[in-house]
Design a protein around this nucleic acid. Structure first.
Lengths: 232, 232
DNA sequence: TAGATTGTTAATCGATTAACAATC
DNA sequence: TAGATTGTTAATCGATTAACAATC
């Protein structure tokens, strides 16, 4: 059976955060950094940083560390953000419109180039300079724009169908902002991005850990979230 | 060092998704369900569903399955969403405003009751019926409203300071929508929610720059997302 | 050289899956 | 009872951490 060689999800997330930190370091004028510094920024361990990077090659020099700019470019390449990604937004309600207009995407090489909505009253209008297309035109527009990634911002009841339409049109990666569980073929990468799901992660953790005696302090979740300054 | 047994992050996420599915099942009029059905909906295994639930008690009956409504209430209680959570939004730019107005939150028991911005021109204005407060009033407003969760939607350069202000004011859970790495004390739960970080997860998996061939190879990603690329 | 820090291997830890007795 | 499905234990799998030789 064919196996899948994919980057561990946790590593993928950390790479993004390393990149954010390297951007910051570059802004500050730092030329080199080390696994220890990167780890400290995220609350991870130095070993984990080196392990993560070692999956993709050798980027540092023993005794010296990493060149900030060099590592930045390497991680951008690994994440695939050394090139531009045309992105579609499906559903231009309140959230969809905000996503369509959100400036930061372009700075990170994601361009919202296509919008879709089922409401004929919205089709043809412009949001942030992009025309809203009908769902019927999805195949055509997605192909023309070379879209492979999409943001799904439709109501829960429309999520499954809209997601399937995206997949048929050739999209292979979807962020699902709808409060619904969507099932797609395994080849499609689908992440839940519904803010209420994320809020539930907070309430779950926050109510699960009501002020405990200090001797039993939180293990702090993964290094990605918020490991403390406090150590013992 | 002592550790706390907190709910595994992955379990927490699945619980949210089980809940979405149970909501759907309840809408459809289903009265019972099984670990196999829940698993199928998410692309997980039945064993995993039962294992997740077994962390919190016994909710099903052998040979019968789970009562949809009963399990729904149980999961709502575990996630802490059987009660209302007052939520603050910091930064009412494009994204912050959309978050402040997003309707779905209230349906899920999260009420946006406080807004903050550093811009004096925005302070005092209303968004979705909530007045924008100044950062100086944060301590007071957060205390008055009993806010423990916050959405951080400020620019990257302001994220660390704003997050620290939230923590000082008593907030213990934060979704970070800013494209910056934020470090906070371990007791605070902090999740990255920056959409560009999420998009990078997609581009990373979709372009799946596979590691140099090694003796070991990756597995297929968690059932929650989707399996990666098939190679070989 | 001496000190620093890498890349990698081995040990640990945690999470997922398979199997099955219990039981409705 | 016979069939179905749970909750749980043991086995597997993967990810994190510690340790260290290599090397700048």
């Amino acid at each position: 059976m064919t196996r899948v060689s994919s980057i561990p999800k946790a590593t993928c997330l950390r790479l993004s955060l390393y990149l954010r930190h390297l951007d910051h370091a570059a802004d500050q004028g730092s030329e080199t950094t080390s696994s220890a510094q990167l780890a400290a920024a995220l609350g991870a361990t130095a070993a984990q940083v080196r392990k993560d990077l070692s999956l993709f090659g050798q980027f540092g020099r023993p005794g010296v560390g990493y060149q900030v700019e060099e590592l930045r470019q390497a991680i951008r390449r690994i994440l695939g953000v050394d090139r531009r990604w045309p992105v579609a937004v499906v559903g231009v309600g309140n959230l969809g419109r905000a996503l369509a207009r959100y400036r930061e995407f372009a700075e990170r090489n994601f361009d919202v180039v296509a919008l879709f909505d089922i409401d004929p009253a919205k089709v043809g209008s412009r949001i942030g300079g992009v025309v809203v297309s009908s769902m019927e035109d999805m195949d055509k527009v997605v192909a023309e724009c070379g879209v492979r990634l999409a943001l799904l911002a439709v109501p829960a009841h429309a999520a499954q169908k809209a997601a399937e339409a995206l997949v048929r049109a050739g999209v292979t990666g979807i962020l699902n902002f709808a409060p619904a569980v969507v099932r797609l073929p395994a080849r499609v990468v689908l992440y839940p991005a519904d803010v209420s799901v994320l809020l539930e992660q907070l309430s779950c953790q926050v109510s699960a850990e009501p002020a405990r005696p200090r001797s039993r302090r939180g293990k702090g979740g993964s290094a990605l979230t918020a490991r403390g300054f406090e150590v013992e």
